[in-house]
Write a protein that binds this DNA or RNA. Structure first.
Length: 475
RNA sequence: GGCCCCGUCGUCUAGCGGCCCAGGACGCCGCCCUCUCAAGGCGGUGGCGCCGGUUCGAAUCCGGUCGGGGCUACCA
């Protein structure tokens, strides 16, 4: 049987890195096993879902490079892949489930249930008590006469429910520890509790890999699966694997609210998708001893869900950045230039290609690279006041004047000649230490104390612009 | 409260009974290199939560304890 896995987010906001890692592990497992990666959108909550989020979801997944075999815009044999377009399927299944007695109408409000628990001396937070399980037709009619609309609940069997988790081993829930749960709202709309396992069943998902927060709902889903098998909707219960959390600040599960978890922060911040994905893969998985940088292809070749460990991991922005930097360095020069160019939309591609090698080894993100090359791209530089105060004072003026003299007469404008001329004029001529000799020039030309290598920068800037900036810096 | 999961350096991990008085990466601290910043090189800091048990032998197996996290909606 070929392995079918899925990523099924709801479009209620931007993806966060925990979601992305879940998608990555599903994707990698599918690719490793030559299986199928299904992408399904769970937009059954009209109040929270939005079309913008939906569009961004697809765009983000594409940017990451996690291509799907079935799903929105690519289709597939089990579509549609947006739950909002599957209403008819749900309605039909609900009818069958009801006819077979797997679900029943429940009129109790949470307050009533709680009151019954109190009256019986039980913990009021126990959850639904099964009060409506065996209502007679007359009783149901009476509730309806009051204007109440029933939800539909699944009847949980009075037995232990267990499964062998792909990541955690044997897990079981004691009889009676999981209350009958709601699958259809009073207004007839199906809930996630129904649509998620139902679509997994209908889409023939063989391995459900998801966050560990869904573990407590697994026994309910297993029971629902049995009901679905009974009504002929499917013929097997999938395997489950519950991925550990990605934690954020304060050791709390990373949520959509936490800014450090937002995918867009990394996308807009100049991260490479392969860098971010590599880092995320490190959270809960290891490609092998003494190794933590690898390509997506290498990950696919090595990935097995059984190797994922069960303990939660803290997202470390610093290490993420370092891994990203490593991937930046691994890029072939032309490819690096192309990607850097995306963050310098108004720059001449030829210039970016020539300048890219100067920054490739000194940046963590593409945004930093773009920043560092700003002085080459823009007509005017933005002078850092603190840098100017430090480097363009009396001593600096002397340096600039000497540099101007040496460079103005230079026959050939290339890095080697520039270096030789400045070395002769400043280090030997004025007897300056190199750092004192080149500091003022760097600031005059780039506006900052930190820049790409100076001589190459001057070459790329060109004689005219270089001299103009030096002159402008002379008081 | 109830149910469930987890527990190796500050962080992410390797380790699946002897190869480990625990290895790597990030961070941090030194040194080297150096036109700034990086990169690179060298060295250092630092951990098996605790208590029992099994065993000739435990980071590895079992029990307990403590600690952390999650779920407990007519959200997903």
């Amino acid at each position: 049987m070929t392995i079918r896995v899925r990523f099924a987010p709801s479009p209620t906001g931007d993806l966060h890195v925990g979601n992305v890692r879940t998608a990555l592990f599903n994707w990698a497992y599918a690719r490793h096993t030559k299986g199928t990666f299904v992408f399904r959108v769970e937009d059954t909550d009209a109040a929270r879902d939005s079309d913008e989020s939906y569009a961004r979801l697809l765009d983000d997944l594409r940017w990451l490079g996690l291509d799907w075999d079935e799903g929105p815009e690519v289709g597939g044999p089990y579509g549609p892949y947006r739950q909002s377009e599957r209403r008819a399927v749900y309605a039909e299944t609900i009818d069958k489930l009801r006819a077979a007695g797997h679900v029943y109408e429940s009129f109790s409000t949470p307050e009533e249930t709680e009151a019954r628990h109190r009256a019986a001396g039980r913990d009021p937070k126990l959850g639904y008590d099964g009060f409506d399980r065996d209502l007679t037709d007359e009783q149901r009619a009476a509730y309806r006469a009051e204007g109440r609309l029933p939800v539909l609940r699944v009847r949980m069997p009075d037995e232990e429910i267990s499964w062998h988790d792909l990541i955690r081993g044997d897990i079981s829930f004691a009889p009676g520890s999981v209350p009958d749960f709601v699958v259809v709202r009073g207004n007839g709309e199906p809930l996630y509790t129904l649509t998620n396992p139902l679509d997994d069943a209908l889409m023939r998902i063989t391995h459900v890999l998801r966050g560990e927060d869904l573990m407590p709902s697994t026994p309910r889903q297993i029971v629902l699966y049995r009901a679905l098998i009974d009504i002929g909707a499917t013929d097997f219960v999938p395997s489950f694997g519950h991925l550990p959390f990605v934690m954020g600040e304060g050791n709390k599960k990373l949520s959509k609210r936490a800014p450090e978890g937002s995918l867009h922060r990394y996308r807009e911040g100049g991260y490479l998708p392969e860098g971010l994905l590599n880092y995320l893969a490190l959270l809960g998985w290891s490609i092998g001893p003494d190794r933590d940088v690898f390509s997506l292809d290498e990950m696919v070749a090595a990935f097995d869900i059984a190797d994922v460990n069960a303990n939660s991991a803290r997202f470390d922005p610093k290490k993420c950045e370092v891994i990203n930097a490593t991937h930046i360095r691994m890029l072939p020069a032309p490819e690096f230039a192309r990607r850097l160019g995306e963050y310098l939309p108004d720059a001449d591609p030829a210039l970016v290609e020539a300048a890219a090698p100067l920054v490739q080894e000194r940046i963590q993100t593409l945004v930093e690279g773009a920043d560092m090359l700003r002085f080459l791209v823009d007509a005017d530089i933005e002078m850092d006041e603190a840098a100017a105060a430090k480097q363009l004072g009396d001593a600096g003026q002397q340096v600039l004047t000497a540099a101007l003299l040496a460079l103005d007469a230079l026959p050939s404008w290339d890095a080697t000649s520039i270096e030789a001329a400045l070395q002769a004029a400043l280090v030997e001529g004025l007897g300056l230490k190199p750092r004192n000799a080149y500091g003022p020039i760097r600031v005059a030309v780039t506006g900052r104390t930190v820049s790409p290598p100076l001589f190459e920068s001057l070459e790329l800037l060109g004689r005219e612009r270089s001299l103009a900036r030096l002159r402008a810096a002379v008081a």
